[in-house]
């Protein structure tokens, strides 16, 4: 028993070491930092929860959180529906060139977010982007992709483009794990392809969908690269508080308010935990009923 336990620890040690050094330690250090206040004049003083109370009253942070929450509510269902549809289509076996299709949808995920955003930023361009040129040829005004009203949608489009393939692969992998005798039994019972998809495949995908959903909660609330790059194209639309992560970054690297940024990051982490838990709770209750 004793030697077993010892060798067990030995096996997990490499992971634990990296985990502690790369995750636990930075997190603990950030938590520690968030309790102090370093000023340009006067140095560092212990501030207790002052940074947190300031953050809770910070309208710009609140606006950012609400904005990404709105983003989540609109973008994620859309993206997951698309992923689900393409996973089912590939799995149905009815699709020609299924491999090409699968690869085609997945490729955007392999494109770095920065490159994807730059590319879309160009496509969105109000003066020389292809959409603007097309609209110009048709005598229409250029679609204002980068305007205040459209920005969140334009960004949702980029993120959807990037991650549909990724979620599709998760769902498709889960579909491959469904035993084929279920389909055969259903077919014997007279179920068609649609019925099989609805009654067997989608219920079987529930855990995978939940996984995708949780990833999406985290991804949405931590939006950073896309707004950060689009900021250059539309500086008056995207300010430094556009998303909470962008805000924390600006606080730390523009305002040198590292301690406050740490507190904001922790609060954002708390928001994500709560949102993820809510998703789990709601879906868990539904599956029981």
């Amino acid at each position: 028993m004793n030697t077993h336990a010892k060798s067990g620890y030995l096996f997990v040690a490499p992971f634990l070491l990296v985990f502690a050094a790369m995750l636990v330690a930075p997190l603990a250090y950030a938590a520690y930092l968030s309790l102090f206040r370093e000023q340009l004049i006067g140095g560092t003083v212990f501030a207790g929860f002052e940074n947190y109370t300031r953050a809770l009253q910070d309208d710009r942070l609140m606006d950012g959180v609400l904005r990404v929450a709105r983003f989540f509510v609109i973008q994620v269902p859309l993206m997951l529906a698309l992923s689900l549809a393409s996973a089912l289509a590939i799995d149905s076996g009815l699709l020609r060139f299924a491999k090409v299709f699968r690869l085609g949808i997945f490729i955007p995920y392999a494109v770095p977010a920065v490159v994807a955003t730059l590319m879309w930023g160009y496509l969105y361009g109000p003066d020389f982007g292809p959409f603007a040129q097309l609209a110009g040829k048709l005598g229409l005004p250029a679609p204002p992709f980068l305007s205040d009203d459209w920005m969140l949608g334009s960004m949702a489009n980029i993120v959807t483009w990037e991650f549909v393939g990724y979620n599709m692969i998760i769902l498709y992998a889960a579909l491959r794990a469904v035993p084929h005798d279920l389909y055969e039994a259903a077919a014997v019972d007279g179920a068609g392809a649609w019925r099989i998809a609805w009654s067997i495949k989608i219920p079987a995908l529930r855990p995978a969908l939940l996984l995708c959903l949780i990833f999406s909660v985290i991804g949405s609330f931590q939006l950073f690269a896309e707004p950060q790059l689009l900021q250059r194209l539309a500086p008056s639309v995207i300010d430094s508080g556009y998303t909470p992560n962008l805000y924390a970054y600006t606080l730390a690297f523009t305002g040198q308010e590292v301690n406050y940024a740490a507190a904001v990051s922790f609060l954002l982490g708390a928001v994500i935990v709560v949102a993820s838990y809510t998703v789990l709770f709601v879906s868990g209750r539904r599956s029981r009923s």
Binding site: L33, A113, Y166, L223, F224, N245
Partner: peptide, 20 residues
């Protein structure tokens, strides 16, 4: 997910930057 990795990297940078 990419964003997660990105964020921990950002945290790390934050800590490096803050080691005063």
């Amino acid at each position: 997910m990419k964003a997660v990795k990105r964020f921990s990297a950002a945290l790390l940078v934050l800590c490096l930057a803050a080691c005063t």
